[in-house]
Design a binder for these strands. Structure first.
Length: 398
DNA sequence: ACTCTGTCTCAAGACGTA
DNA sequence: TTGAGACAGAGT
DNA sequence: TACGTCC
């Protein structure tokens, strides 16, 4: 789960690390996609009233629809997707998962009650929260993407961590996810909101794909990687709760001052204003990010092959009752796209562009911030606020 | 007065036709 | 589930 | 472009 406010922190203190760009900029690149996140989004969004789309056996199929078209679009854009699937949840996530399960149960009951009361709107709202990705759904997704000629990687544990591994070793250019944790796992590039730049319908919603660069981020925040990881832990992550009263800003100044999670935590403990979770296993927490359970990149083989038309049809049409014509159409698009986009990216052509671009963006942000400021005390312009840089934060007084 | 955190709310896909 | 925005309220 | 349908 992302660190609350991290995006804003980056926007304020390391704007160069954020680059909004067209999906086309990823032409010719391989991207490691956090499949679970992608599937979950589809599951929540694609429904008829309160219900997901289902096949004749009552199995949910909402996600297949979206996955099918998204994959086609990526190929059409000349992007080479790798779908990375979650394995077992890490042991330290136990507490977090328990919380989620509880929330789901509550939502389930609320949905049932709303339905009995005849409040359809409310029922739908709660129904969205009850979604579960079953192993069968995962399996169907893997079958689909593989049938489409796209590699599906099964991570032993967390997909985010596996994506990072692929990027670190050059098997992919970027991780595609909404979750900022990918950066904590060490992906150098993270692309969020890719989908809004991929499909025609989503494009007009104001969102554009956003690329985060970890190296620039570290440089501008003036943190070493391990300090950044410490920062993320300090803010609260899936493996430990945050500390009440400590958000991103305070965490950043703490890390700048102490340069070490253990020391920062000690400092907080000394001020009895803060409740530090007990235990707070610093080393174990760091290991979650530095030594996550993953398949080594050298043991992963990726192949983008020809779509298996028959397999796609079997899954979509035969097993899940999708419209045959539509699927056939999709396959046609896929085959066509493969032909046209099978060119090689000319990296040198794109490279010089990125630096000036980032600079221009940063300048723009600064200008926007200034403009907002000079307008009296108007509220902040969305997404970013005054670019104040805290060089040496101090926490309270010792 | 200003800065930061916590808490609440909201919306969420992709396609084709009209 | 997720992020983001708006606002309230605590802390400095 | 808005909206209903997709399974």
């Amino acid at each position: 789960m992302g660190i609350k406010g991290l995006t804003k922190l980056i926007g304020d203190n390391a704007p160069r690390a954020i680059k909004q760009q067209d999906a086309k900029a990823l032409f010719g690149r391989k991207v490691a996609i956090d499949a679970s996140m992608c599937i979950y989004q589809l599951l929540v969004a694609v429904r008829m009233g309160a219900d997901n789309l289902t096949n004749e056996d009552g199995m949910v199929t909402s996600h297949l629809n979206g996955l099918f078209y998204r994959t086609i679009r990526l190929i059409e854009l000349g992007i080479k997707p790798i779908f990375v699937f979650d394995g077992k949840p890490p042991s330290m996530k136990g507490g977090e998962l328990a919380k989620r399960a509880e929330a789901k149960k509550a939502a389930e009951e609320a949905a049932k009650k709303a339905e009995e009361d005849g409040n359809l709107e409310l029922a739908e709202k709660f129904a969205r929260r009850v979604n579960r990705i079953t192993p069968e759904m995962m399996a169907a997704c893997k079958t689909l993407v593989r049938a489409m000629g796209v590699p599906a990687v099964e991570a032993p544990c967390e997909a985010e961590a596996q994506c990072a591994e692929l990027v670190k070793h050059g098997l992919a250019y970027a991780t595609v996810s909404e979750d900022m944790d990918s950066l904590t796992f060490g992906t150098n590039k993270l692309v969020r909101q890719l989908w809004s730049g991929v499909s025609a319908s989503a494009q007009k919603k104001g969102h554009t794909p956003t690329e985060f660069s970890l190296d620039v981020l570290l440089e501008d925040l003036d943190l070493k990687m391990h300090e950044f990881v410490d920062l993320c832990i300090l803010c609260g992550c899936d493996y430990v709760d945050g500390i009440k009263g400590v958000g991103v800003v305070k965490a950043l100044s703490l890390m700048r001052e102490h340069k070490d999670l253990a020391k920062a935590v000690e400092a907080l403990k000394r001020l009895d204003r803060y409740e530090v979770p007990d235990p707070y296993p610093v080393d174990a927490l760091r290991e979650m990010f530095f030594k996550p359970e993953i398949t080594a990149a050298k043991d992963v083989s990726l192949k983008w092959g020809k779509p298996d038309e028959a397999a796609i049809k079997k899954l979509m049409v035969e097993d899940n009752q999708f419209d045959e014509t539509k699927i056939a159409n999709g396959i046609k698009r896929l085959l066509l796209a493969r032909k046209t986009s099978n060119q090689v990216r000319v990296d040198s052509f794109f490279k010089p562009k990125s630096a000036p671009n980032a600079g221009a963006l940063a300048a723009k942000r600064k200008a926007a911030a200034l403009a907002a400021k000079s307008k009296g005390k108007k509220r902040r312009s969305p997404g970013l606020s005054k670019g104040k840089i805290m060089k040496k934060g101090k926490l309270g007084n010792k």
